[in-house]
Amino acid sequence: MTADDPRPLSDDERAVYAWQVTVPGFGEVGQQKLRDASVLISRVGGLGSVVAYELAAAGVGRLVLAHGGDIKKSDLNRQLLMTWDALGTSRIASVERRLRDLNPRLDLHCIAENVNDENVTDLVARADVVVDCAPLFEERFAMNRAAVQQGKPVVECAMYELQAQITTMIPGRTACLACLHPEIPPAWKREFPVFGAVSGAVACLGAMEAIKVIADLGTPLTDRLLTMDLRDMTTRTIRIARRVGCEACGGVGQ
């Protein structure tokens, strides 16, 4: 064994991940990649709770989780790591407790604030892959810029009412968030209509994309925007491209 060989799986890891290491193309090598990987999840709310729970269950070794504020009643229709008995207490503390209940082997970096211009460079630097689950375009654009600068893949998830969309972005190769939407939309509000089952559905897809990117499994959703309307169960796959002169990624990798 050379110094570069990953540590073999422990007996506990073999037992917990028995149902997924048998997936063709994944195997124990894929499991080792997940264990040795770090994922930043920006806000652990309706989307991020389910992304974090799935990645914790799948055995991603380190989760960097950023979410400010205390639990409100209006969180509970979708933010599945928050609980009724913890109303009024720190969201991120509830997230940490629930994730540790599931997987005590996790290396958790829990930050009790949302991504902002001051912390974004450091938070993105701690991750191999970023999953964007944040509601405000200011923080999403800040994270997009940092991910592009640091060459970190980003899984972009979003939802509204019964609609959802997702794409996976590789800096220097695919469109970035600012290629899709070059400006902050003035009409967007932090609070919007959505069911938890909608955010949860696209969150599971987002977790799977992160797993695929880390473990080099299958074909990630790059250069394509998958849209879903759960009202009538229609899906659409739209080809997307880098925008010439993009303020965030223009010139990177070209």
């Binding site: 806000r43 709310g45 309706g46 989307l47 991020g48 964007d132 689950c133 944040a134 509601p135 405000l136 375009f137 999403r140 998830c157 979003a158 939802m159 509204y160 609609q163 959802a164 969309q165 469109a175 899709l180 939407h181 939309p185 009409a187 967007w188 932090r190 609070e191 919007f192 959505v194 955010s199 925007l225 849209t227 659409r236 739209i238 080809r239 997307i240 491209a241 925008r243 010439v244």
Partner: peptide
């Protein structure tokens, strides 16, 4: 197919446009 040049792209009979305002997580 994403359209980035809205003025320079013409539509044909029977075309389907999808128009989205940005959406987010939360």
């Amino acid at each position: 197919e994403q359209v980035t040049d809205l003025d320079g792209t013409t539509v044909a009979d029977g075309a389907r446009l999808v128009v989205m305002t940005p959406i987010s997580g939360g």
